[in-house]
Amino acid sequence: MKLSWLLPVAVAAASLEEILSRSKGGQPIEIFSDDEVKTILAEPREDTVIFVFTALDPSINCEPCRMFKPTFELLAKSWYTKHSGGLGLQFAFTDFKNNRETFQRLQILQAPLIKIYPGKRAAFSEEIQYTPTSAHMPAEYVAKEISQLIGIELKINRPTDWATVFLKLSIGLLVLTSVYFTARHIRTIIFNKFIWTIISIFLYLTFVSGSMFNNIRHVPYVGGDGHGNPAYFANGLSMQFAVESQIVTLLYGALAFAVIALATRAATNKNPSVQAVTVFSWLFVLYTVNAYLVSVFSSKQGGGYPFHLPPW
């Protein structure tokens, strides 16, 4: 990109080969201008082109675009690694930020949008428009749907994620070494009630604050309000952000801990005035956090919830 102001002529006249060579390394071909779009789509076309019109710039706040990006990259990578140079099928995309003319010329009003342009040997003759049923569908599913549309079988090869493998291996090693060095104490750890209490309650709290929802739906970590400010709570009872469920875990934990403290620490205190202060502060925590939780729930309900605890 840095060369573009040095060699403007060369860039403007990027030939088809140059554009197609961008697929080296298995990425989808990125298109930077309307002229390039015209070049790659020029009739007669050799190759079928799967073209994604997307808007990844944060200012546009297109969540589905961002969610679809890794899926599309995986599709392209799986194809290009088996078919060097494309062999009749190319994966291309253009971003609204770099290339407004194409969006205007083709009157594209939504993103992400996939258009499939037939090549010379394609089984279909008209361009096909395809919108994924839902942006968080797994790549396998998208591949199956596109395969049906174009009559070429796309297969997904998920690359081995060496980072994860390495992480898992090192965690395993860590566990093994710690077992080796603490072997004398391992019995006390395994049979320690307190450790198991913490583990059980922690597992319970993460499950009820929707961690499985986050794992299955791949929800974003935080949302936005459209003006660049982060939003920590999503709208609606069946939606949440990942940070939201972490906040809720903390709130639940605080409430449960307040109850435990009221029953144990506060009640066994031997000094009447210290006890009064302790009970009072834990009651304050219990009441305030609960009131805040109810207000968060109420705002997620969208106004239909009739109850609130003062001061909210």
Partner: peptide, 19 residues
């Protein structure tokens, strides 16, 4: 899958009393 508001909707304070 269930988001956290559904737990709160269906069990309210029980969800944090239980731990």
């Amino acid at each position: 899958p269930t988001a956290w508001p559904m737990f709160f909707f269906d069990t309210h304070m029980l969800v944090w009393l239980a731990p």
